[in-house]
Nucleic acid binder design. Structure first.
Length: 254
DNA sequence: AAGTCACCCAACCGCGTCTCT
DNA sequence: TAGAGACGCGGTTGGGTGACT
């Protein structure tokens, strides 16, 4: 696996720590990834500083931990966020704010870093275009009134099309090229019943635990995994989510 | 074809919290 | 109980990439 995942040529640099030991920084190389994976596979994780040393890595413990959690961990799900996941992020962020790790706990296979990046690059961009603060009530209102229904609509469309031409995930998985690290992906919600359930839970305050989150597994696909690269390959065109009439209505909130 | 810009995301940093001695 | 080290979280940065001019 390539550091940076896009075929970038790693240009790691080194510096010396206070003991004069070399400490590498920057993108991880394939060799470093393999060392870390092998070491965690045989010895387990934890004690990151000593793990780094005993694995022969010239990295800080912090760096090793981050690399593992955000990139190498076997259950990491990659690819675009599905409308379902986007909906959850919007909903959970409206409740908890920038509690990225807490939000990530409700999106299997997604990291807090990924969710944070999504929020900063997509959601905040949308707020900037509307010229409203992404943490303001106006923006939350706009999200609830327009963005969330759009995502639900998209999920319903997807459910309908997938029920008429249900892809054979098992075949897709079998046909997928072998990966050096087995990454499994949660299967998406693909029935109208599931979507209705998600809508119900999202719109029902009673179904929400104050501190622990949803009482039910609203992700609906808890342990179900299939090796599909990306359920919702089609990118949701965020910038076109709101038409000019809607934009005008948002600004009336001000 | 070359330059510029915006976007995306991996990785780093600082700081608060937890755990161990 | 206090101090040190490890861990975890949220904010920020920097470089690669593709779109646009």
């Amino acid at each position: 696996m390539m550091s940076g995942s896009k075929g970038k040529i790693p240009k790691s640099c080194s510096k010396l720590d206070e003991d004069g030991n070399e400490v590498r920084r920057g993108p991880w190389t394939l060799e470093e990834d393999n060392l870390l994976i092998q070491h965690i596979t045989s010895h387990g994780k934890g004690q990151w500083n000593s793990l780094s040393k005993s694995a022969g890595l010239k990295r800080t413990g912090k760096s090793c931990r981050l690399r593992w959690l955000n990139y190498l961990k076997p259950d990491i799900k990659r690819g675009n966020l599905s409308p379902h996941e986007q909906l959850l992020i919007l909903e959970l962020h409206s409740r908890w704010g920038n509690r990225w790790s807490k939000i990530a706990q409700h999106l299997p296979g997604r990291t807090d870093n990924e969710i944070k990046n999504y929020w900063r690059t997509r959601v905040q961009k949308q707020a900037r275009q509307l010229k409203i603060d992404s943490n303001s009530n106006n923006f939350l209102e706009a999200v609830r009134l327009y963005w969330m229904p759009r995502l639900l609509e998209k999920m319903e469309q997807n459910a309908k099309s997938s029920s008429s031409e249900t892809p054979n995930l098992a075949i897709s998985a079998a046909a997928a090229p072998p990966s050096p690290i087995q990454i499994s992906h949660p299967a998406p919600p693909n029935s109208e019943m599931e979507i209705e359930e998600i809508s119900r839970v999202l719109s029902s305050p009673e179904s929400f635990d104050e501190d622990c989150g949803y009482r039910e597994d609203i992700t609906g696909y808890g342990e179900c995994h299939a090796a599909v690269a990306d359920w919702f390959g089609e990118e949701i065109g965020m910038s076109s989510f709101w038409n000019s009439d809607e934009l005008w209505q948002f600004r009336r909130f001000d």
